[in-house]
Design a binder for these strands. Sequence first.
DNA 1: AATAATCATGTAATCGATTACACGAAAATA
DNA 2: TATTTTCGTGTAATCGATTACATGATTATT
Lengths: 342, 342
Amino acid sequence: MSEKITIYDIAKKLNITAATVSRALNNNPKIKESTRELVIKTAASMNYKQNKLALALKSGRSNNIGVIVPRIDSNFFASVIRGIEEELQPHGYQVIICQTHEDLKRESENLYTLIDAQVDGILMSVTAVSIENDSAFHNVLEKNVPLIFFDRSKHIDGVSSVTINDFKGGYIATKHLIAEGCRCIAHLSGDQSLEIFKNRFLGYKQALLDSGLTFKEEYVVPVKSMVEAGKEAVDILLKLDTPPDAIFSSSDFAALGAIQELKERNISIPQDFCVAGFSNEPFTKFMELSITSVDQSPLEMGKMSARVFLEQVDKTETIKIEKKVVLAPELHIRKSSSRTTS
Amino acid sequence: MSEKITIYDIAKKLNITAATVSRALNNNPKIKESTRELVIKTAASMNYKQNKLALALKSGRSNNIGVIVPRIDSNFFASVIRGIEEELQPHGYQVIICQTHEDLKRESENLYTLIDAQVDGILMSVTAVSIENDSAFHNVLEKNVPLIFFDRSKHIDGVSSVTINDFKGGYIATKHLIAEGCRCIAHLSGDQSLEIFKNRFLGYKQALLDSGLTFKEEYVVPVKSMVEAGKEAVDILLKLDTPPDAIFSSSDFAALGAIQELKERNISIPQDFCVAGFSNEPFTKFMELSITSVDQSPLEMGKMSARVFLEQVDKTETIKIEKKVVLAPELHIRKSSSRTTS
DNA sequence: AATAATCATGTAATCGATTACACGAAAATA
DNA sequence: TATTTTCGTGTAATCGATTACATGATTATT
């Protein structure tokens, strides 16, 4: 039943004041060396532990940072969080996790909750773009708490971001499919109100145009990031007058669904149809028919976000720092689109 | 540049004391109704937010709970954390995440860090069993902070746990392989100093004995939870005088590696060889040759752990509550072991 | 030796909220 | 009317650590 030891307990034992104890423990140069040693030794023997809450109240800094993601049980977000945690742990920060489940209301709630909890910064991937709930973001900025978006970003003055070049990701994936001989390439697109999906789409479109292929609106199918959605998309696409011979999907899960549906219809991959996904989820590599996918280097993204936070925290300057880091996407070519090598 | 509003600011504005403001906001019945309304209205208009750090210091409760896992970027642990977060969020608790990376030293460090941060409870999956570092656990218990193990547990007085019945998991998986006609069943085992792996092994062994099959030491191959380890294990097993005709793996990743290696050697699955894994990782379902696996209901495990925590927190009784919750494993039978239905 | 400078430590305010106790005013009782 | 309750609010301590300022003791300077 260990009582909580405070600096007052140490002070009483040594017949000095708490102020002296505090100074000794904080290596204040004004303290006599002998006193410092005595205090440190006594503190250790009494098993003293600094109360971080008291420190936090006094300093106004909790040494906690908040991370908000749509959900944690996706390899991408979990990996980003891993990166954040690894980068921040050595600096004494603890990571507080919140999930939005793609719900705007919960996103706002989480933002307010984290500010209430006096976090020193917030790193997040936004849920969706909407003009209404901007007040939650501005509330964060007004409190001078660094706010950093990763992956899913939105334009707000004073907010830094760490993203990948989604345009380029869409571009290189599509270019690759073209290089493999595909000429009618469809696109499974996520919610284009989110920049990441908008940009992947634009990259896809540009690749077509740069290669002299015509862009067809009907080849673009909106999907949720789910296996079932990919199946349905294939169903729609194959009913077209000129069905496509390849799919660039903005989601690995939808890509997987597409492949399953194509196989169901006895269409050979990659001979008759090529597929590329996005995110490089672990399963894309594991499949017997492994899936080509664009890697977003989530670990690096997490670490980078953490570093941007560290740069911004403690900067008392009122000048809003706004840093935009853009990481390069990397295409992992696998069986689902390898005609030349297979 | 919004200044931080405190109850003193509200008090000054209304010419009353902070104590009255505090009482009004906390629905203290001693406050005149008109005063309460006025305070609440004023607080709202001034955009007052309670400082949780001050509250935490005063009450000794941070409303944060710590979660320690080997790593977060595994579907299993991420799902458990999701469950914990969902269950605790409505109660006003924030979840702080720490990773051990299977390192005993980091495990101890994390425990001390969380206690320093004044968390109200710690939910964790232990890294490995070792007698030396028990002091970190006892330090938690001495501070009267509820400690709950999930999945990977170890025997410490006063610690509750939420696990699945790993013995049964190993048992039903093995029984299933036997029912499919397999007679020489090998086992890929994780570190048996961890109870979960020990129990899966014991379940496997018991199933063999109950079915009149002989247990062979040479059929048990220790593996890490990695694809490569599964390949190597198959290499070893096929060199035996009597090679096995099935594998029950304590890891899905090792099971996947095993399957890849078996295919490489043109052994047909499930006709000539059956495989079952453990954890029900998402990819086991996604494969063309989907993998039979034992589900650990991680979401439920997380929620249950959170509930056990809620039961224990605030119980000021010195009597150590020790609750052991054991969830039932569920076998998901898939192609890698379905001779009868395929 | 007298004065100034330096050093080590103590005193007390502060961070923001809660709460035991005190106290005056109003209401209830005798 | 005098006395006791009740009610609403104020006073001040508390949680644990930090730190500006004050102070007394040494040491350095002339």
